[in-house]
Nucleic acid binder design. Structure first.
Length: 595
RNA sequence: GGAGCCGUAGUGUAGCGGUUAGCAUAUCUGCCUGUCACGCAGAAGGUCGCGGGUUCGAAUCCCGUCGGCUCCGCCA
């Protein structure tokens, strides 16, 4: 290796040293008789000065931004009046006080003018994101773009260290595996050796990690790549990374405690902050009741309340209809806040998007209620409403089924801070657990589907309900929530063949179907499966929040755009006819160009 | 599958019925020995995403389409 230092390593201590640096030209300032170059590598920037009497002065002529050059020279303190405490944003580096006087300058690689400025003078948000992703290798030269990846590295390092010290074993599970029904859409990979058959890329290593427990691996983890062929969002990529954890002979509290310990370690290591443990636990029911969400953001001060009783004799037809249909009247009280018509309309849109038929509102500016529904309100109802906003303000109301009313107001609750101009503390790390999820969800057609996944264990005391009232059965399932984002979820698993079969049955699988899809797994259960459970963290999302990013794309080296296309490589792309033939595949003429 | 926002030199933007399509920055040339977003002078650079329509006249208005982003559905 020729280089003796990295740019950012140099400091006043290096003064007088002869160094060889290699890096990119961040900027060039040509004063005619004197040329300055800011040289950049991963460690930071340092100023190189080429003096007119230098033998290498002429070499500078051709050098442009983003050329890669080697500079041999002497480090010296800058003239006193020319010292800059900080030239770069890189923490604490004081290369602004020194410079490298070039004795020899060699161009290692020329570079075209980049399609967007990457010298730190333009903020990334001002450049079209697609352009940046198409040239991601240029984008990542910017320290701000590279930062989330460096943070990511430190986070995964902390995870490895902590789990290793806790006796966990990292095991890799296959990427080419079996498609299992339901859940998300699978990515399929055709088999050449078994024409007509397909692998699926794993949506998660769920069954493999359970098999590892049956194999006696006690404590397992993996930074597992997972694949789900669903539409993308700012916080959803088709291939993403889970921290997958599974433990044997444990109960729910053991897994929560392990997760908390790990999170505490991680936050201390990468942010130098101390988390208060344990995290608050909120039941699913309570989370929905109070926050209208199963991933409540506890930084948000507003809460929902129930006014079903107060409106039991209401004359307001829309509310009475909802109550008679077995629904509820729920409210979101905004003490001291008045909203404009325009804002109320905007919020009503939010409620409607979540299935509410409308959004009612009442404002108190004294004791008289104002708003379109005020004239339908009896004295008791006005009293109940006013009790929610004793100092005046707005009450937003939705009457509907419990789920719809809670969800709609929950969505509004999330919007409120932005609407009324209150900022949630973005430095806060507000963790909580949501626990006691229902085992099952009732579909529109009245059938049951699992809420978490079909391997989730029901709470023992709720088991009798499976026959009488399955919707009320609670699961040993939990989600980890950070600032209103679901960043992890897990459960205790079924470890008995008979219980697992019963679960499949309940979910509408015929015995034959269950055998065909999960036979290998049911057989494994017959050979002695320990009680076990685990959790999977959405690693990308966690990093996104800790990096202060607003999109998963910022924390993934080479992300895909909203249509699942990688703007850099252009994937996915058509393949040669020959490749299809080998796989025994034929494209329908209407599909793609199919070259 | 659906809704919304956005597409103008390399980049970021102004212009919103008649402009030689403006500005900044980058690029190129010249000058410049202490700059650090160097400065100064000059030059080049535009199918106004694409197609159609309205109009005497369209970057501008209308329709369609393509692309990007955000959201709903979907994501055990």
């Amino acid at each position: 290796m020729r280089r003796t230092h990295q740019c950012g390593q140099l400091s006043t201590d290096s003064a007088g040293a002869r160094v060889i640096l290699q890096g990119w030209v961040n900027r060039r300032r040509d004063l005619g008789g004197l040329v300055f170059v800011d040289l950049r590598d991963r460690s930071g920037l340092v100023q190189v000065v080429i003096e007119p009497d230098s033998a290498t002065f002429g070499d500078m002529e051709v050098v442009r931004s983003e050329f890669i050059i080697e500079v041999q020279g002497i480090v010296r303190l800058r003239p006193k009046e020319q010292r800059r405490v900080r030239l770069s944003e890189s923490e604490g580096l004081d290369t602004g006080v020194i410079e490298v006087v070039a004795e020899k300058l060699t161009v290692l690689a020329e570079a075209q003018t980049p399609p967007f400025l990457i010298d730190g003078t333009v903020d990334a948000s001002e450049v079209d994101e697609e352009l940046r992703l198409r040239h991601r290798y240029l984008d990542l030269r910017r320290p701000e773009a590279a930062h989330p990846l460096l943070l990511r590295h430190r986070i995964t390092k902390a995870i490895w260290d902590y789990l290793d010290s806790e006796g966990f074993v990292q095991v890799e599970t296959p990427l080419l595996t079996l498609s299992t029904p339901e859940g998300a859409r699978d990515y399929l990979v055709p088999s050449r050796t078994e024409p007509g058959s397909f692998y699926a890329l794993p949506q998660s290593p769920q069954l493999f990690k359970q098999l590892l427990m049956m194999a006696g691996f006690d404590r397992y983890f993996q930074l597992a790549r997972c694949f789900r062929d669903e539409d993308l969002r700012a916080d959803r990529q088709p291939d993403f990374t889970q921290l997958d954890i599974e433990m044997s002979f444990v109960e729910q509290e053991d897994i929560l405690a392990l997760s908390e310990g790990l999170m505490h370690h991680l936050i201390r290591e990468v942010l130098g902050r101390e988390l208060a443990l344990p995290f608050q636990q909120i039941s699913y029911r309570e989370a929905m009741d109070r926050f209208g969400s199963d991933k409540p953001d506890l930084r948000n001060p507003f809460e929902l309340s129930d006014l079903s009783a107060a409106f039991s004799n209401t004359e307001f037809r829309a509310f009475r209809g909802a109550l008679e249909a077995g629904g509820v009247v729920r409210a979101l009280a905004l003490t001291g806040t008045r909203l404009s018509r325009r804002e109320l309309t905007q919020l009503e849109e939010v409620a409607k998007r979540r299935g509410a038929k409308g959004l009612a509102w009442v404002q108190f500016d004294g004791s008289a209620p104002k708003g379109p529904i005020a004239k339908f309100l009896g004295e008791a109802e006005v009293g109940a409403l006013q009790a929610l906003v004793p100092e005046g303000g707005t009450v937003l109301l939705v009457a509907d089924s419990w789920t719809t009313a809670c969800t709609a107001l929950g969505a509004i609750r999330t919007e409120i801070p932005a609407v009324i101009g209150v900022e949630l503390d973005d430095c806060a790390l507000s963790f909580c657990w949501v626990v006691d999820f229902p085992l099952l969800e009732v579909e529109a057609d009245g059938t049951f589907s699992y809420m978490h996944h079909p391997f989730t264990r029901a709470r023992d005391e709720d088991l009798p309900l499976l026959e009488t009232d399955p919707a009320r059965v609670r699961a040993w399932a939990y989600d980890l929530v950070l600032n209103g984002n679901e960043i992890g979820g897990g459960s205790l698993r079924i470890h008995r063949h008979d219980v697992q079969s019963r679960m499949f049955e309940l979910l509408g699988f015929t015995q034959e179907e269950a055998e065909r899809r999960f036979g290998f797994f049911l057989r494994a259960l017959d050979y002695g499966a320990p009680p076990h459970g685990g959790i999977a963290w959405g690693l990308d999302r966690l990093i996104m929040i800790l990096a202060g990013a607003s999109s998963l794309r910022d924390v993934i080296a080479f992300p895909k755009n909203q249509r699942g296309i990688d703007p850099l490589t252009g994937a996915p792309a058509p393949v040669e006819q020959e490749q299809l033939k080998e796989l025994g595949l034929e494209l329908r003429p209407t599909v793609g160009e199919g070259t």
